[in-house]
Computed example of a mutant assay.
Amino acid sequence: MKTTSEHNKRIAEMTFAAVYPHYVTKVERKGRTKEELHQVIEWLTGFNENKLQKLIDEKVTFETFFEKANLNPNAGLIKGVICGYRIEEIENVLTKQVRYLDKLVDELAKGRKMENILRDE
């Protein structure tokens, strides 16, 4: 499945603050914690809880969110299908980064062990 320029633009302009509550709801509904979610987000982006809250309060777009992020060097190990897209085949860098985050949240909600989610070799 190939992403379109309209799809990529929509993702870039979406605010992290609008999506974050859905991440929290998804993981908590499956018995995981907000702290575990923050651990996953920090692993991917380098944002600690205070920085994450600041970005939420500022209502930054995903584009700004990932521009400010220090992406984990092992992020490329995140593979698979999320939202109907195979991550390895996504060409747009920002869309791929957002799907990395979506995939990690999905794995957390599905009960995967933290050491497997964080892909630290």
Rank of each mutant, 00 (worst) to 15 (best):
residue 78 I to R: 01
residue 83 C to V: 10
residue 8 N to D: 15
residue 52 L to D: 03
residue 70 N to F: 08
residue 16 F to Q: 08
residue 109 A to M: 05
residue 90 I to A: 00
residue 20 Y to G: 06
residue 18 A to S: 15
residue 10 R to L: 14
residue 50 N to R: 14
residue 1 M to V: 11
residue 30 K to L: 01
residue 18 A to Y: 10
residue 81 V to K: 12
residue 27 V to L: 01
residue 55 L to D: 06
residue 98 V to H: 09
residue 66 F to D: 03
residue 50 N to H: 09
residue 20 Y to C: 06
residue 88 E to H: 03
residue 40 V to Q: 02
residue 45 T to F: 03
residue 43 W to D: 02
residue 7 H to R: 13
residue 80 G to Y: 08
residue 94 L to Q: 01
residue 105 V to Q: 00
residue 53 Q to I: 06
residue 63 E to G: 05
residue 78 I to K: 01
residue 109 A to P: 11
residue 117 I to C: 04
residue 5 S to A: 14
residue 41 I to T: 02
residue 35 E to Y: 03
residue 64 T to V: 14
residue 95 T to M: 00
residue 39 Q to C: 09
residue 5 S to W: 10
residue 99 R to F: 15
residue 118 L to T: 09
residue 67 E to M: 13
residue 45 T to P: 06
residue 112 R to M: 10
residue 19 V to C: 12
residue 114 M to Y: 05
residue 29 R to F: 01
residue 73 P to G: 13
residue 28 E to M: 09
residue 67 E to F: 07
residue 46 G to E: 07
residue 64 T to N: 13
residue 83 C to L: 15
residue 12 A to F: 09
residue 80 G to S: 07
residue 111 G to F: 01
residue 49 E to G: 04
residue 117 I to R: 03
residue 65 F to G: 07
residue 93 V to Y: 05
residue 69 A to K: 05
residue 89 E to Q: 14
residue 40 V to W: 01
residue 22 H to Y: 12
residue 77 L to M: 09
residue 21 P to W: 09
residue 80 G to K: 10
residue 119 R to P: 08
residue 101 L to W: 04
residue 88 E to R: 07
residue 26 K to M: 13
residue 99 R to T: 11
residue 15 T to N: 05
residue 35 E to K: 06
residue 21 P to S: 12
residue 49 E to F: 01
residue 120 D to A: 10
residue 29 R to W: 04
residue 77 L to V: 08
residue 73 P to Q: 13
residue 31 G to L: 02
residue 53 Q to H: 07
residue 19 V to N: 11
residue 19 V to P: 08
residue 46 G to K: 10
residue 67 E to R: 15
residue 48 N to T: 06
residue 27 V to D: 03
residue 39 Q to P: 05
residue 30 K to M: 08
residue 12 A to L: 09
residue 8 N to I: 09
